[in-house]
């Protein structure tokens, strides 16, 4: 379905209410990435939508919920492991520092590097991008099937896999991510397993309706040879 800009503009309201159907949301988000006016409209509508939360007559939350949340936050923190030395804060500029703090907050301690990203600088940029996605509350998240973690899809359908406690691939092999659309898998980067969580930037966007899958391969290959061990079907 083809929608014009007026129609898209109108979708800002339903978007702010989290009430768009998946196809419209994807179309609107693509438009939003390039439309500053829409971004302002969404921000303003979100304020209005949040006011609706105040209109609800409801019982108070159970008293123990407060303690449960604080306990969960406390339990969340021990997962945080210091960043590897080369990512220590003083060495980084502003954006990188924010990403590093986000990484700490997320408990993300390590980021795998795709074979194409062999110089440290571009690897670090990819890392930062992936972490920014992983931490962006506006990004869409889909739980992974086959592993702990999620697929995070941000602006312009750029995406990262956040994978936790994934066993090392057997026999010196590696994990390779694929973006599959219309039954056609396209390579999206290789990565390793390991303790903790890692954010893996995907090398290509994940269009609406596409599936992300991970196979175990002998190094980077152009076509998957095995069955998917991890899948995610983003909205």
């Amino acid at each position: 379905m083809r929608v014009n800009d007026t129609d898209l503009h109108e979708l800002a309201a339903a978007y702010a209410l989290d009430a768009l159907d998946d196809d419209d949301r994807a179309a609107f988000e693509r438009h939003l990435a390039a439309c500053e006016q829409c971004a302002h409209e969404v921000a303003s509508f979100r304020e209005t939508a949040a006011s609706l939360a105040y209109a609800v007559d409801a019982p108070a939350p159970p008293a123990e919920l407060r303690g449960r949340i604080l306990d969960a936050a406390r339990a969340d923190r021990p997962n945080v492991v210091p960043l590897p030395r080369r990512w220590t804060l003083p060495a980084l500029g502003g954006v990188a520092a924010v990403a590093a703090v986000a990484a700490l907050a997320l408990g993300v301690w390590s980021v795998s590097l795709s074979s194409q990203l062999d110089d440290e600088r571009s690897a670090r940029e990819a890392t930062e991008r992936a972490l920014a996605f992983a931490a962006d509350p506006d990004a869409a998240r889909t739980e992974l099937t086959g592993a702990e973690g999620s697929l995070v899809v941000g602006e312009g359908r750029s995406a990262a896999l956040v994978v936790c406690r994934l066993a090392e691939a057997p026999g010196g092999k590696t994990y390779e991510a694929w973006v599959i659309q219309g039954g056609r898998p396209q390579p999206a980067g290789v990565f390793d397993g390991g303790a903790g969580c890692r954010a893996v930037p995907l090398e290509r966007p994940v269009p609406a309706g596409a599936t992300v899958a991970v196979t175990i391969e002998d190094g980077r290959v152009a076509q998957p040879t095995g069955e998917p061990v991890i899948t995610a079907e983003p909205a």
Partner: peptide, 27 residues
């Protein structure tokens, strides 16, 4: 609230009020 806890560092005050951000996450 755990999402708030984990990603407070990414909150952009010029984009929203904290209350709006929190209630948006809840919603």
């Amino acid at each position: 609230f755990l999402a708030v806890w984990r990603s407070a560092a990414t909150f952009l005050p010029e984009r929203a009020r904290p209350s709006t951000w929190i209630l948006t996450l809840v919603h």
